[in-house]
Amino acid sequence: MRIAIASGKGGTGKTTVATNLAYVGSRNGRSVVYVDCDVEEPNGHIFLKPDLDGATPVGTLVPKVDESKCIHCGDCGDICQYSAIVSVGDAVLVFGELCHGCGGCSLVCPSGAISEVLHEIGEVHVGSTGPLAFAHGLLRVGQAMSPPVIKAVKAAAPAADLAIIDAPPGTSCPVIESVRDCDFLLLVTEPTPFGLNDLKLAVAMAREMKLPFGVVINRADLGDRETHLYCGNNDIEILTEIPDDRKIAESYSRGELAGEVLPGYRRMFETLLGRIDLRAG
């Protein structure tokens, strides 16, 4: 089973929920892997403190041109939608950072002048922490396209009965890539106008992708009641509410797992995991 944790708005507590679910699941004898798909700003390792294997490079395939075979027909530049390859004068130029790795240029080249080479854009690490398996990725600073790294993290993650997928914030391509094949989507929000606005976007995404989902309200006593009303009016199940507890904020700031160090919270995350099991199973 694959559970993805997403939010729309950043900083609502995705990583708190994801790391604690992975922690309580693995401590209760289940085979669990935590997969951090926020490859731009991964934070799960701060809380789970895994032992990691060496880095595996991740790249996209970009064209390499053998000028001696090129007949300057220009087809490569014509098929490319991203201006990543152009035939101009006596030369063919490749702009690797614009390439999406579709392979069109090498397919279309009539003289076999184009091969593909790996252009590194990030790296993936796998490891473990106690009984819990772990995977995360790092987009190289300055690279724009995170989805290939996200795809690589998911592919590299050790097999387990339960995968907890920690998605990046937002609702666009990196989030889509993270959650696209999950069995259940958990949306973490906070009861503020910003939190609610972005929850609505995340709900629209979940419905568009036809994913079963439920909501966790974090810092539940912080803002107003609008989020509760919205969920009630739209038949959206609130699976749990986490209080606005300064003890959680402080333990989070130090990189501690609430389910491990604070009494009562282990039970809360066990109950949440049980509810998700019922809905997704």
């Binding site: 724009a144 396209m145 700031s253």
Partner: peptide, 27 residues
């Protein structure tokens, strides 16, 4: 936007000044 990827790169390229807002957590 959050992160360091495509939308962030598009929003900072050629700007005069960036203000980074962070919070006192290890994350």
């Amino acid at each position: 936007s959050p992160g360091i990827g495509c939308p962030v790169i598009a929003s900072i390229g050629g700007a005069d000044l960036v203000l980074v807002v962070t919070e006192p957590t290890l994350s």
